Simulated assay, not measured.
Amino acid sequence: MLDDLDEDLAGALRVARGAQGPAYAFKKVVLGEVASVTTVLRERLGIAERQAQDVISTATSMAGALWQMAAPGTRLRALYETRPELAHALVDVESQLTRILTALLKGMCAGQRPDASGHSR
């Protein structure tokens, strides 16, 4: 999913320079998906809307950053593979992103205190 989003985003940014139509259409689809994921996170974890959006933002930005270090064929990956002193910088995107998001969500959920009606503040 994140790979597709990354490809779509890159394409949309190229198009956005020349025409509003495709960029608007892309943004509309992406924002619809963000709303859907936000709803699921709120329902399942009881976090606030802004927190859910922060999780999505963190996931997409970290996935892009980590992918640059991990993707076969990228210059950065080639550098890490050819320089032993940089080998520790090679990452497994899925496991590292999972650890980052798990820590973020645990922190958010730990900070939630239900009010008298059982809703998180």
Rank of each mutant, 00 (worst) to 15 (best):
Leu5Thr: 14
Leu5Asn: 13
Leu5Met: 12
Asp6Phe: 10
Asp6Pro: 05
Glu7Phe: 12
Asp8His: 15
Asp8Glu: 12
Ala10Cys: 07
Gly11Pro: 12
Gly11Trp: 14
Ala12Phe: 07
Leu13Lys: 14
Arg14Leu: 14
Ala16Tyr: 03
Gly18Asn: 06
Gly21Gln: 03
Gly21Tyr: 00
Ala23Arg: 00
Ala25Tyr: 01
Phe26Arg: 04
Phe26Tyr: 06
Lys27Gln: 09
Lys28Asp: 01
Val30Ile: 11
Leu31Thr: 09
Leu31Ser: 08
Gly32Arg: 13
Ala35Lys: 02
Ala35Leu: 03
Ala35Ile: 01
Ser36Trp: 02
Val37Ala: 12
Val37Asn: 02
Val37Ile: 08
Val40Gly: 00
Arg42Gln: 15
Glu43Arg: 15
Glu43Ile: 06
Gly46Gln: 03
Ile47Glu: 00
Ile47Ser: 04
Ala48Ile: 02
Glu49Asn: 11
Gln51Val: 03
Ala52Ser: 14
Ala52Asn: 08
Gln53Asn: 04
Asp54Pro: 00
Val55Trp: 14
Ser57Ala: 05
Ser57Ile: 01
Thr60Tyr: 00
Thr60Asn: 00
Thr60Ser: 01
Ser61Asn: 13
Met62Leu: 06
Trp67Met: 11
Met69Lys: 04
Met69Ile: 03
Pro72Arg: 12
Gly73Lys: 02
Gly73Arg: 06
Thr74Ser: 13
Arg75Ser: 15
Tyr80Asn: 06
Thr82Asn: 09
Glu85Thr: 05
Leu86Tyr: 05
Ala87Leu: 02
His88Asp: 13
Leu90Glu: 02
Val91Ile: 12
Asp92Glu: 13
Asp92Pro: 07
Glu94Asn: 05
Ser95His: 04
Ser95Phe: 03
Gln96Lys: 14
Leu97Asp: 01
Thr98Asn: 04
Arg99Asn: 08
Arg99Phe: 12
Arg99Met: 09
Ile100Gly: 02
Ala103Asp: 08
Leu104Pro: 07
Cys109Gln: 15
Ala110Met: 08
Gln112Asp: 06
Ser117Asn: 11
Gly118Ser: 10
His119Val: 11
Ser120Cys: 13
Ser120Gly: 14
Ser120Asp: 11
Ser120Thr: 11
